[in-house]
């Protein structure tokens, strides 16, 4: 490779990107594969299963796992695997979308509070700390009580419950970074506040914040399941993992598989997200990149 040739091309750039690098590690590979399978399962649920998630078959209720129903059937004779696949749609999309919105708002709020400081900073932090004074589940329950049960309520609840964490993290990072000389140097070169925020400060705190977001997605799945368990999440007949566990809890001895499989799905997904987040954290650190030249 000559030095003057631009190092471009989508493929090498993709190969160097942190998620792909994380995938190449043992831990990230296993976790990533599992997550991709879950997401594919959720996306292609209608084609993967011959059953409908809301089709009842009362004579076939309480079947233990067998060839026709690998995860058994529930109290209405619905296929548990089918409901898990459809449930993944609710659980994953609500958690991921909620965390994405929360992450974005938290980063913008935290970065501008940390960068500009002063009264704006104090106002933002007071508002954000108010939500942090209570456990996440309490904040979430309160919000769902106000908005009403259902996916929208759950979404807003998760958003607000994790906003404080992202805001505080970004703010702390930006405050540490803004006193670095390279920020002063950028100002000396004539860079605007927006350029400093978006080209220097945010890219430098992106790594830890993204990983925090990834790990929070795991927590958010549990929070969504908890709300579902309390009957405050997605409303029947729409399946969600938490809702399935809730209805299975009363039938623990009659049909343990009804609660076992959604529980297992929640646990494995959360563990996989944490593992992948961990692998990503390592790869996002530029200092770990080896010199290629």
């Amino acid at each position: 490779m000559t030095v003057t040739a631009p190092v471009s091309g989508l493929l090498p750039a993709l190969r160097r990107s942190a998620p792909v690098q994380a995938f190449a590690s043992w831990k990230g590979g296993v976790a990533g594969t599992f997550l991709i399978l879950v997401v594919l399962g959720a996306l292609f649920a209608p084609w993967l299963t011959p059953y409908g998630f809301d089709v009842q078959n009362l004579p076939g209720a309480f079947q233990p796992p067998n060839l026709a129903h690998p995860m058994g059937t529930d109290e209405f004779g619905r296929d548990v695997l089918t409901r898990i696949l459809y449930g993944a749609r609710t659980s994953l999309s609500v958690s991921a979308v909620a965390i994405a919105i929360s992450l974005f708002c938290g980063m913008v709020l935290g970065a501008s509070a940390g960068y500009f400081g002063g009264r704006f900073d104090r106002a933002v932090m007071v508002a954000v700390d108010l939500t942090w004074a209570f456990p996440e589940i309490l904040v979430a329950l309160m919000l769902v009580a106000i908005i009403g049960p259902g996916t929208t309520g759950t979404l807003v609840a998760i958003c607000v419950a994790y906003l404080a964490q992202f805001t505080r993290l970004t703010r702390a990072q930006v405050m540490a970074l803004k006193s670095e000389t390279f920020v002063e140097a950028a100002r000396g070169m004539g860079a605007s506040n927006a350029a400093i925020l978006f080209r220097h400060l945010l890219p430098n705190c992106l790594g830890p914040v993204l990983v925090a977001g990834m790990l929070a997605t795991g927590d958010a799945i549990i929070l969504e399941a908890t709300l579902g368990f309390f009957g405050l999440g997605a409303q029947p007949p729409t399946p969600s993992w938490g809702g399935m566990m809730s209805s299975g809890s009363g039938l623990l001895f009659k049909g343990p598989w009804i609660i076992l499989f959604p529980g297992l799905c929640i646990a494995l997904t959360v563990v996989a997200i944490n593992m992948f987040g961990d692998a990503l954290l390592h790869k996002l650190d530029v200092r770990e990149r080896v010199r290629t030249a």
């Binding site: 670095e180 390279f182 004539g190 890219p203």
Partner: peptide
């Protein structure tokens, strides 16, 4: 600390132009 750790040498030297 005067060079952004995420910038390559090229990015650093080009920054004065991009800033303006």
């Amino acid at each position: 600390s005067s060079l952004d750790p995420r910038y390559t040498v090229r990015d650093c030297i080009e920054e004065p132009f991009r800033a303006l």
